[in-house]
Design a protein around this nucleic acid. Structure first.
Lengths: 349, 349
DNA sequence: CTGAAAGCGCTTACAG
DNA sequence: CTGAAAGCGCTTACAG
């Protein structure tokens, strides 16, 4: 079957519908698109004919007269090996698709090694009008993709961080939505008796890392009188370990570490003996992202669970609003939940 | 910027190129598509004009006259929560994209809960001619998607398993390519002194699970004189644990377990105390799929590493061949590597 | 409310 | 080798 040509009887067109219903192509188009200009009786006849013929619009034809593609694009710029470890994108895509599919909008996906390549892919999509808009993720400081969409006027939304460039809905209280989760983590650690904390964030060129680093400094300053340190790592276990070593080598080493993702936290827990620490007795560990890695670690890793699927839904909703020329509906900041597990819960025995 | 309309000066068309180059639209089309019918000089002038104007073909227009979409579709049928734990799809997509992108073919992606929904999505894609072909993964016994592509004559290829329905290239020796990896695992376990083995496969409705189960029975029969048992589980940690408990409760329990994926194997290792076994002393564990879960487990889990990205490449190559009406180039069975780690290596101390 | 007509941006026989 | 023309399947002013 894989070697077969797409034969079969040719697909029906509005011309066929017009013939069957005994009207003009124009009337068919109006009826099919719920436009005024057809009497109810005629409309019913046309719809029945379309149904009977099993008609479906040709995406290409519609696209050509519409000047819209009926598709949006997502160009993921990330090392494939890291991608395999991150459930993030699949969840984001699943959330987006639940909205897009319902509107008959397709999702174009590509995986590229870096932002420069992402820019080229999106430029091509736009030039060929394969997409009506794009979703941008992992925004960087001075991101060339922002220049691209601005220069070309490509409608866009953001996945991760506020989907709307104007920020989250006022319900978020105007405060940085990263503060809530981090406050909960810090309060948990204080309750466990920790007074010296540290954070291992992602690469500083990511906007979300910057936002979280800033929120971390604020939250810890308010809670402990002085901002607690932040180190950067690239989300890999290797760099997470290296950062941990540097922190532990300090004169007054932290007793609790908050990592930006699950891989770094779980790697540190796995390498606790090599690091010469007991967890949680000597060192408490918290992950900024939850996954099966956290659940299976020994001890299991406390984690912030973010509702990535909901973030995907919000991104798609905003993008569809923009494409339809509507004012984007305000989006609430994504939900999160702090899951306290053994890696930060002193079971004083 | 997200609220902006796609304004700007209108994109150039072949009409503009024709005007600049002083030729007809037809000549422009021939030159642009590398067709005969234009003199070298004219061709150069046309190409220069296209370049200068920054022309890119309109996907819709081309699609409409071509009767081809310039896109292929992948409808993943999998529970979103399991998806987040499986690096498989991202790797497959990355491999496919590396081939497709080079040919200017887009990838349409959707995530749906079950095969029935996948059929409906693909039916829609095909009816609207949004795709020229599809990639099918996780084929089942009596898979409704196979009926769909057969009935409608949709060109397709398979991701995971042979991309070509005729099977792998003869280089694979005509033998089931699942035998190689499993033989290596079984030999490793025998060398470690194990004589009672068992396998925990995926759901029996998956074709790949059936193939592997059959290969497992053959390989173990040849090595041990009698086929070793196989249980089914749904790839989740919960069912992996349940299957393990059942196996350990047998009169002559196995001393080595081979799981079909990383999640089940890593979960069993994480729950070794609850199961009342030492690993690898009482029970050796091997995973049929490698991931960071295996590396971070304690003890680390021995695993079969399959080159999923290469499988993605092969799928895309075959599909492009089929679409071009070429006989699909024979594809080698994907590479694999057995990584022996502590979970199955008796460090007799 | 309805129909004939032009147009979206390409491709491709068909004459010169 | 080159050009005028029809056609792909829709949408949308514009007359009736």
């Amino acid at each position: 079957m894989a070697g077969q040509t797409p034969a079969g009887n040719p697909r029906p067109t509005i011309r066929d519908i017009a013939r069957v219903a005994g009207v003009s192509k124009a009337s068919v188009s109006y009826a099919l698109n719920d436009q005024p200009g057809v009497s109810p009786g005629t409309r019913d006849r046309i719809l029945a004919a379309a149904e009977q013929l099993g008609w479906r619009p040709s995406a290409a034809a519609r696209s050509l007269s519409n000047a819209r593609a009926g598709a949006v694009g997502l160009a993921i710029a990330r090392d494939v090996r890291l991608l395999g470890e991150e459930p993030y994108y699949m969840r984001l895509i699943a959330g987006m698709e639940s909205v897009l599919a319902a509107q008959g909008v397709s999702l174009l996906l590509t995986v590229v090694p870096d932002v420069g390549a992402a820019v080229e892919v999106m430029r091509g999509w736009w030039a060929e009008r394969r997409v009506d808009g794009v979703v941008l993720t992992d925004l960087r400081v001075d991101d060339p993709r922002l220049d691209l969409v601005a220069d070309l006027g490509i409608p866009c939304t953001f996945g991760g961080g506020p989907p709307d460039p104007r920020g989250y809905a006022p319900a978020a209280g105007g405060r940085d939505p990263e503060r809530g989760p981090l406050t909960e983590v810090v309060e948990h650690l204080l309750a466990q008796g920790h007074r010296r904390l540290a954070r291992v964030g992602g690469p500083a060129h990511f906007q979300h890392t910057r936002r979280r680093n800033a929120a971390w400094r604020e939250v810890t300053r308010e809670a402990l009188g002085r901002a607690q340190p932040v180190l950067s790592a690239d989300y890999s276990g290797r760099e997470g370990l290296a950062a941990t070593r540097r922190l532990l080598a300090r004169a007054e080493p932290p007793t609790a570490l908050v990592f930006d993702n699950d891989v770094m936290a779980a790697t540190v827990v796995a390498e606790r003996r090599a690091l010469g620490v007991r967890i949680p007795e000597d060192l408490a560990v918290v992950a900024g992202e939850d996954s099966i890695l956290c659940r299976l670690a020994d001890p299991a890793v406390s984690a912030l669970r973010r509702d990535v699927t909901a973030a995907g839904v919000a991104s798609a909703v905003v993008l569809l609003d923009v494409l339809a020329g509507r004012e984007p509906a305000p989006q609430a900041a994504p939900g999160y939940e702090f899951i306290a597990r053994a890696s930060s819960t002193a079971a004083r025995r």
